[in-house]
Amino acid sequence: MITASRNSVISGILIALVLLASVPLWANPGWVFVVGFVLVEALFCLSWNLLFGFAGVATFGHAAFFAVGAYLVGWGLRAGESFLLLMLGAGVLGGLGSLLVGLVALRRMTGIHLAVLTLALSEVLYIVIGNTHALGGIDGLASIPRPTIHLGLAEISLESSDAYYWFLLLTCSVFALVLWWLVQSRFGRVLRCIKQDGERAEFIGVNVNRYQLAAFVVAGAVAAVAGGLSAPLTQIVTPAAGYWMHSIQAVLNSLLGGAGFFWGPALGTAIFAGIDFVTRTFAGLSEVVVGGILLVIVLAFPGGVLGFLSTLKSRRDRNADAAANVVETGLKEPAE
């Protein structure tokens, strides 16, 4: 049963990858840009949900790490630095930043306090960036060039939109798969154990704080990588990348798709992008629709879209099992 669902997930991922890779072949450039944007946001949301869905830590300031990566790469590309080095730097800086925040905050705060503290810290970064002249102030850094990657003798130019899209898809997929692997590994299982009951995890000898801190660092680093990827895509970085509404967007996407499922946030990001697209011409309607959907999810389907689907599936399986039992034993009532 488990292998079957795992196989279906893997084949689903492969189909999605092939479809995504073919986008520049049949869609117009505007669409390629939108899909690229969704990919970056999806990676960002996956990194947030590593904390919320698996480690049981809710932060409301995750966009700060995204902004760190975006600004580092945007600023570096304008200065003519090497793109791969900048991406590496973004990951390291994001990881260090979250290590710092995690060391100070994780041990002392939980729940609302942690949520508000992370929100406040991200607002500090937002205001500092918005008022720093070297980073373009409130207007941000514009006309960021698309990079060229130098690999020894080979040179790969990412200047065309399609080339950059494929690079983006490759990088996002690799990072998403690494996160996925991490969640399946022993590390991920320990995190889930902590989420279910931190106190008992502590009892059986798990260093809860260290594990949560590790998840925090990974999440911060991946968010910064997502931010870094966004800079050459949009070719402009503004303080809005680190605004608290961006952090909240990660929360909303993850819950919509299903925070208890690894791929939930990615699905949620895609659905949200669709809702935004359909309601974009009606000012106000999109908020009412999105807000209403959120309320319905929180009140009726806390598992999100994937949670809802899996309930449907398990109900169908149970019916199928019951039917199979009837066939195998030839009895309508199981003999006790």
């Binding site: 919320f52 809710a58 409301f60 729940g111 609302i112 949520a115 909240i248 929360v251 909303l252 819950l255 106000g284 309607l285 999109s286 908020e287 009412v288 629709v289 999105v290 807000g291 209403g292 959907i293 959120l294 309320l295 929180v298 009140l299 806390p302």
Partner: peptide, 17 residues
């Protein structure tokens, strides 16, 4: 608590819309 925050945030969006 997290779900309360998110639920009431949905409510805020409905108000704004």
């Amino acid at each position: 608590e997290e779900y309360m925050l998110i639920g009431t945030f949905g409510l805020l969006m409905v108000c704004v819309g």
